[in-house]
Write a protein that binds this DNA or RNA. Structure first.
Length: 495
DNA sequence: ATCGGCTCGCGCAA
DNA sequence: TGCGCGAAGCCGAT
């Protein structure tokens, strides 16, 4: 089922009688459970044309490095193969996305794209809409309830968006059926030679797909991506890896998710966020699988709250607030709050570089930073603590915001995601309520290491992290400290 | 161990 | 205009 709310024309041009339907794949980079893809197939069948899929790979995407490109490419090659099995050709082309989309659409009847929520993705769609000469339609496949359908404004908190989303779930939490591309009528209308011409002017197509590691190394080098952040050996990119993790999560962890998800010393998370970020798995598919699972209803509800309400609150934030990635995007009461605390004394002040190298006095914080640097994903609970402490130990909250965004975007596989921006902003009070006033934070929620000790076996988290960092060959002085003493800088007697 | 208060503003009821 | 209540907590009183 593709609801009309997911579909929006981005220009007023006509559908031509030309050679093929084009799907400019960008945010939903997958062959399964993709509304934009299914819509494109239906249109191709209606028009009796073939379908061509194109993905534009941007060299120098802001903040993207070898870790991100590697994960994305693993997924893209898998998607290309999966589409081929459905009789659909997909080209991965290096260049500027709107130019590639425009150029590739020259011989197209109709162009389809999907929907990402970052500013740069909005800009690409706008630019493409100006350049594409045929009809150009956007089909949303990255959320369960389309953002503008759920709400027409920036929401204040989870509690304000929750009723708006839940009342629409009956409608939008619905399965998506696959349509087969009708190859008999479509197959003959484009020849291989013509096909390759489509991309000639658009950019350089990535052809190689050797077995083994997919040969991403050379491609990443060609793209000029920052090699200093290494690919993660903990998370393999692609839909197959995502589905396997999801299955395992539902089978073994979902029942205890409500009670154990916050414990950093355990691993009761679904770890879907990197895959969701790169569009390698559908949030709708995950939600349906969890809902249909024969697991405890409360557990499933807690998970659904996170993957639907909280995740889509972050899309709402990025969609309606252009300053989602800067300090100025925070609510007025927060800005006023921090202005009043400008001159509060800071006991520790670290630079962005010191944070990056995990050189703080706090071993819990250092462990969290190292976990992120080594694996590409920090435990969700530690992300809160991590962000709160950057506020406490920076020159000022504006610097803190910059540091947190920089580090999150650089090391997290799910960095540069609406969830990441909303998560950082949450640490600064966004979407949260005020609490007891205290130094530096004012009435923005405070967190401290006592909470970690009170609630979890946090020492075992530190130990676990130190071990996996060593296994990864992380060589930082902070790691040695982590191995030697792991009591958050205090004597064991005090604990 | 458990509990209430802290603190702001949205959204709904009236 | 008043009132209830909220994404993950902390702290002091009991």
């Amino acid at each position: 089922m593709i609801h009309s709310e997911r579909i929006r024309p981005l220009n007023n041009n006509a559908v031509y009688d030309k050679k093929f339907v084009l799907y400019w794949m960008q945010a939903s980079a997958r062959a399964g459970y993709n509304h934009a893809l299914e819509y494109a197939i239906k249109k191709a069948n209606e028009l009796k044309k073939t379908l061509i899929v194109i993905f534009a790979l941007t060299p120098g995407f802001p903040g993207a490095n070898a870790r991100h490109y590697h994960f994305m490419l693993e997924g893209l090659f898998e998607t290309r193969n999966a589409l081929l099995k459905r009789g659909i050709k997909m080209a991965i082309v290096i260049g500027n996305p709107p130019d590639i989309a425009a150029s590739a659409s020259k011989e197209a009847c109709l162009a389809i794209t999907d929907m990402g929520y970052l500013k740069i993705q909005r800009l690409w769609r706008r630019e493409a809409a100006e350049k594409i000469k045929c009809a150009f339609i956007q089909v949303e496949s990255d959320v369960i309830v389309p953002v503008e359908t759920a709400s027409n404004k920036e929401e204040f908190a989870a509690r304000t968006i929750r009723p708006k989303i839940t009342r629409l779930l009956e409608k939008f939490l619905a399965p998506l059926n696959e349509t087969r591309l009708d190859l008999r009528s479509a197959g003959s209308n484009i020849k291989d030679k013509e096909y390759s011409n489509i991309f000639k002017n658009a950019g350089e197509e990535i052809i190689p797909c050797p077995s083994g590691d997919h040969g991403t190394g050379a491609i990443i080098k060609n793209l000029g991506a920052d090699p200093s952040v290494k690919p993660s050996s903990f998370y393999r990119g692609g839909a197959a890896a995502a589905l396997k993790l999801l299955e395992e999560f539902i089978e073994n962890k979902l029942d205890d998710y409500a009670g154990l998800r916050n414990d950093p010393s355990l691993g009761f998370l679904s770890n879907m966020s990197p895959y969701l970020h790169f569009g390698q798995i559908s949030p709708l598919y995950i939600a349906l699988k969890v809902k249909e699972s024969q697991k405890k209803k409360t557990a499933a509800d807690v998970y659904l709250e996170e993957i639907i309400v909280r995740r889509e609150l972050s899309m709402n934030f990025c969609h309606y607030n252009d300053n989602y990635d800067s300090f100025e995007g925070l609510p007025e009461w927060v800005l006023k709050n921090f202005r009043e605390r400008e001159n509060d004394r800071r006991e520790y002040i670290y630079t962005s570089e010191e944070f990056e190298k995990a050189m703080t006095h706090d071993h819990y914080w250092n462990a969290a930073q190292l976990e992120m640097a080594a694996t590409g994903k920090m435990h969700n609970y530690m992300r809160m603590y991590w962000g709160k402490k950057i506020i406490e130990w920076s020159e000022n909250p504006r610097e803190a915001f910059k540091t947190a965004i920089y580090l999150n975007n650089r090391y997290e596989l799910d960095g540069r995601d609406p969830n990441g921006f909303a998560g950082v902003a949450w640490c600064f009070g966004k979407h949260d309520r005020p609490w007891t006033k205290r130094p530096i934070f004012g009435s923005v929620r405070y967190m401290n290491e006592n909470g970690l000790r009170r609630k979890f076996d946090i020492e075992s988290y530190v130990k676990k992290t130190a071990e996996l960092c060593r296994a990864e060959g992380v060589e930082l002085p902070s790691l040695t400290h982590l191995m030697e003493k792991n009591h958050g800088g205090r004597n064991p007697e005090e604990i």
